[in-house]
């Protein structure tokens, strides 16, 4: 059972959290201006890197806040957590 350091509550067990997929994929400013392909990229396509990956988490059984984390997908190690709206910190992979 991994510990996830919620930026609001501190380290808590992963069972308290809900996964939210890739971070920093903004809802498009004007969806109607996008081509079908551009829109499909937003709706259906996400990165799947081997290594550090910025992703969204929600502390759903705790403070219920969304935040971002950089996780190494090879080891599950969380390299950084940061609050929504904050820029992604530099991490050493």
């Amino acid at each position: 059972m991994q510990l996830i350091p919620c930026p609001w509550c501190g380290p808590r067990e992963e069972a308290e959290f809900h996964y939210g997929g890739q971070a920093h994929v903004a809802y498009p400013e004007d969806p109607s201006a996008l081509t079908d392909e551009e829109w499909a990229q937003y709706v259906f396509f996400r990165d799947n890197p081997s290594g550090p990956f910025a992703e969204r988490w929600s502390h759903s059984a705790g403070c219920r806040r969304w935040f971002n984390a950089v996780r190494d997908t090879r080891s599950h190690d969380l390299l950084a957590v940061y609050r929504a709206g904050e820029p992604m910190p530099e991490v050493a992979s």
Partner: peptide, 10 residues
């Protein structure tokens, strides 16, 4: 949850 997600993240 859906509402909170949009309100907090977007």
């Amino acid at each position: 949850d859906w509402m909170e997600e949009w309100l907090q993240t977007e």
